[in-house]
């Protein structure tokens, strides 16, 4: 049987520090995308400012049934137009897509490689070399 690894005993301060460290990392990653969102919101606001024509039910060209359902939901033509005219932009930036793919695949490869090395230590201690 392989010699058993005896881990050090962690102090109370160390335990508290480690718990808080992980939490700090979580909050940081929650906040990070906000930096990008501020820029996106500014450009969206500039685009919205250009559209000033007041819509009507006729200009929205909805069928009577669809218009009735909007009205049942408490919407007038102006409020409905704000939702109807909102469009997502699915333009793909190949560079960002490639970076994201590399980071994602790299993360799993790194994790599997390191895990395998650690797992061999576990198996060696448990079953012997």
């Amino acid at each position: 049987m392989t010699k058993q690894y005896e881990p050090p005993k962690q102090s109370w301060f160390g335990q508290i520090f480690d718990s808080l460290f992980v939490l700090a990392l979580v909050y940081l990653s929650l906040m990070l995308p906000l930096l990008f969102k501020t820029k996106e919101a500014a450009s969206a606001a500039a685009g919205a400012a250009a559209e000033v024509v007041k819509p009507t039910w006729e200009s929205l060209q909805l069928s009577p049934v669809v218009q009735e359902q909007w009205e049942k939901l408490g919407y007038d033509a102006e409020k409905a137009a704000a939702l109807i005219n909102t469009r997502f932009d699915y333009t793909i930036d190949p560079t960002w897509l490639a970076i994201t793919a590399v980071v994602l695949i790299g993360y799993f490869v790194f994790m599997l490689k390191v895990s395998d090395k650690e797992y061999r230590e576990v198996i060696a201690e448990k079953f012997g070399k």
Binding site: V22, L25, V26, L28, S29, L30, L32, P33, F36, K37, F88, Y90, I92, W96, L97, I99, T100, V103, L104, Y107, F110, M111, V114
Partner: peptide, 19 residues
């Protein structure tokens, strides 16, 4: 990636740093 590309990278960064 299409809707929340920045969040995807940010969350992956968290798990990489934690690892």
């Amino acid at each position: 990636f299409l809707g929340y590309g920045n969040s995807l990278l940010s969350i992956l960064a968290f798990y990489i740093l934690a690892s």
